[in-house]
Design a protein around this nucleic acid. Sequence first.
DNA 1: AAGATCGATCGGAAATTCCTATGGGACTGA
DNA 2: TCAGTCCCATAGGAATTTCCGATCGATCTT
Lengths: 299, 299
Amino acid sequence: MGLTLRQMRYFAALAKERHFGRAADAAHISQPALSAQILDLEQTLGVRLVERNRNGILLTRDGEEVLQKVSLILEQVERLEGLRRSSSSMLDGLVRIGIIPTVAPYLVPKLVPCLRNLSASLELELKEAVTDRLIVDLQEGRLDAVIAALPVQGDGLETVSLFTDRFFMAIANNAEAILMSPLTETQVDIDRLLLLEEGHCLREQALSVCGTAGKRSLVNFGATSMTTLLQMVSHDMGMTLIPEMAIPTETARNDIRIVPFADPAPSREIGLIWRRSSGRRDEMKALADAISDRATTNR
Amino acid sequence: MGLTLRQMRYFAALAKERHFGRAADAAHISQPALSAQILDLEQTLGVRLVERNRNGILLTRDGEEVLQKVSLILEQVERLEGLRRSSSSMLDGLVRIGIIPTVAPYLVPKLVPCLRNLSASLELELKEAVTDRLIVDLQEGRLDAVIAALPVQGDGLETVSLFTDRFFMAIANNAEAILMSPLTETQVDIDRLLLLEEGHCLREQALSVCGTAGKRSLVNFGATSMTTLLQMVSHDMGMTLIPEMAIPTETARNDIRIVPFADPAPSREIGLIWRRSSGRRDEMKALADAISDRATTNR
DNA sequence: AAGATCGATCGGAAATTCCTATGGGACTGA
DNA sequence: TCAGTCCCATAGGAATTTCCGATCGATCTT
């Protein structure tokens, strides 16, 4: 068909030993085998590479030239061969994780030290985007894992739950509206419900929780982050659904009242998603354990 | 044993097509064959290179890294493969010729245009040294051919005669010694015979011609060139054997009388010598023809 | 639930590579 | 000069690798 590494390896041995017999020994084959491969190589290249002499051989000028190129190639092949991974089986190297915006700000600070514990030689690359975009990136290999609200649909994906994140309602502290606590969905004034822009799963979840999946909210500034939304709440522009994990961070910044829902409290399930074909199931499970440990304790 | 180019070629095809079936088509093999080679490659490297998905495949990070190296290697191999010589069969590229010092100065000016005629794409490299040294260089591959006085002995050499070079005697023009013309060897005054330093074949030839092979010359400055020798002759320091081919050049510079020998005139045979194993017999014959043509005409 | 797609596996055929034995050229040394 | 030696090429058959067609198993689609 074409050149082979075998031919090149034998040729390199021959060039080194300058003698068919010795080169064959060095290559652990018989002299005729080496002879044949060299002949093949010469024929393939259409060039006489060696002069056969009584006392060993001599490379022709073409042979010298070819030897140089062959040596380069063999060296690179060797380097490639020596690249066999230590296959540490645990996470290492670069890991790219996508996280949805309503989780990222609150989880990342816990995630980073947690991963540092899991593996020292680990470089993290994070991407924040809405679920759909993250899933596409995951499926096309630009991400290794995604942290998003379950369920998630997509071909070839595998999922494990990390933790349950209950929803609360956030209202202005000085709000005159007196809300029963615990809250029921019927008490929510749909016109005052503030929502994230389209694409955020939390937007749909909020509408669903408040039993208004079909209707459109009149107050729709399409906020891009929970922080913006809560800023609006604290200015008494309305109320919004807030996931439990966001509460410590967001209430520290805003003067806001957090009202729980009546049982059964609505919630979202945050999960870790990866490609089944990635063959990193065990690593992902370990990662999930580490994350859920960290996320549920000392919150 | 180790990596093979076959594996790499298939892997490159797979990376390009991102689909086992299509890659197999592109490589003109069956899908199982490709599959097996990829698996082999993965096992050899100890690394999973591709993620098998429902819709084509995805390279792992290791796969991307390996692909890059493999591409480089394949590119070099391709370049090497495309190097098949046009096998112009005639002389071209660099040709290294060694010439003995008593021939070089007089032949080289004729040689250069002559070779230019033989082949345009020809680079000439000349070396001047005594026969023994040239022959060693030839046998060890540092020269492609030697021009020296025949016969020459050495393993694996082939020879062809270029031309016959008669000897003359050179004496000072004002020499009081009256020499018969033509000359016979008995007329030579051994004490006045000037010789080149040891190693030059012309030295031995001169001694042989003058029938004094055994004796030592008293006048022995060990000159390193004919020109020096003839300078000495013109200063009436003695006489010396001069080959016919040197006469035009040397008599133009020195005031010298050239005396022929009686028949049968002594002479040396200049020949072209190369390694039998070089497989360039035809080229060498052609070269010899060209040289002897040029050397015998318009001298 | 049936069909379709895709890569892996299996079993035997085909091709390549290898080994032992031998041939043939070129030098060596009686 | 003639057997002996060294060296690479060739020959023939064995061993290994590669390949193909058929089929499996998993996954997704309808």
